[in-house]
Every structure is written in structure tokens, then in C-alpha cells.
Amino acid sequence: ADLGYNTENVMMCTLMSMPLLDLSSPESLSRHAQTVRNNEQLINQKMNGSPLFTEWAKGKPPYRSEAIYPVSLA
């Protein structure tokens, strides 16, 4: 059955990797949070303004999601 998903010309890439957090002070956590917000805004702006993409999404792909409940093969 055709579920309406476009599976042609699909590209997946990592646009932003998370640096190690410096937990030594509240200021460093605040700076990190601001950097993440700024990077997300920039990515949104550039992706929305690009003529190369008709649609895009961010987040973990479903196949990389972790199980909510432990599963055993017993």
C-alpha cells in the first residue's frame, strides 16, 4: 500500500554535534544553552531559506531511538 512517504532522494546528515558539557559553573551551562539556541536558530534559518530542500526535519531518526522499556530475548 502507498502510505504517501517520499523515499526517493532522501538525505540524512549531522548538522550539529554536541560538545562535552562543562558542569563546573552555572555560567558555563548558560553559555552552552545559549550556543545551542543560536546554532538551532541558524540551522532553521539556513534550511528554510535553501532552495535545495523541499522539506526537512530534525531530531533522531526512528531507527536510532532507544526503547522505553527494557527488552530481553528470553
Rank of each mutant, 00 (worst) to 15 (best):
A1V: 11
A1I: 13
A1F: 15
Y5N: 01
N6D: 15
N6G: 05
T7V: 04
T7L: 03
E8M: 03
E8Q: 14
E8I: 07
V10F: 03
V10L: 11
V10H: 01
M11Y: 15
M11L: 14
M11E: 14
M12R: 11
C13V: 14
C13T: 15
C13K: 14
T14G: 10
T14P: 03
L15F: 00
L15H: 03
L15D: 02
S17R: 10
S17G: 15
S17Q: 11
M18S: 13
M18P: 05
P19R: 01
P19E: 05
P19F: 04
P19N: 02
P19Y: 02
L20T: 13
L20H: 08
L21V: 09
L21A: 09
D22R: 09
D22N: 15
L23Y: 08
L23P: 09
L23F: 15
S24N: 00
S24C: 00
S25F: 06
P26Q: 11
E27A: 14
S28V: 02
S28G: 03
S28Y: 02
S28L: 10
L29V: 00
L29N: 06
L29M: 13
S30P: 01
S30K: 10
S30F: 15
S30N: 13
S30I: 06
R31F: 01
R31E: 07
H32L: 10
H32C: 01
A33H: 10
A33M: 12
Q34V: 00
T35D: 13
T35W: 14
N38D: 15
N38A: 07
N39K: 11
N39Q: 15
E40V: 05
Q41N: 11
L42S: 11
L42I: 10
I43P: 05
I43Q: 00
N44G: 04
N44C: 08
Q45T: 07
Q45Y: 04
K46Y: 03
M47P: 02
M47I: 01
G49F: 00
G49M: 06
G49H: 01
S50D: 06
S50Y: 07
S50P: 06
P51R: 00
L52C: 06
L52S: 09
L52P: 04
L52W: 08
F53Y: 07
F53E: 00
T54V: 01
T54D: 05
E55G: 07
E55K: 05
E55F: 14
E55C: 08
W56D: 01
W56Q: 02
W56E: 01
A57Y: 07
A57R: 12
A57C: 13
K58I: 00
K58P: 04
K60A: 06
P61F: 04
P61I: 03
P61C: 05
P61A: 03
P62D: 02
P62R: 00
Y63G: 02
Y63S: 10
Y63T: 03
R64Y: 04
R64W: 03
S65W: 12
S65Y: 13
E66W: 04
A67S: 12
I68W: 10
I68P: 11
I68H: 09
I68L: 12
I68Y: 09
Y69C: 14
Y69I: 06
Y69F: 12
Y69T: 02
Y69S: 11
P70I: 00
P70V: 09
P70N: 06
V71M: 14
V71S: 13
V71K: 13
L73Q: 08
L73Y: 09
A74Y: 08
A74P: 10
A74N: 10
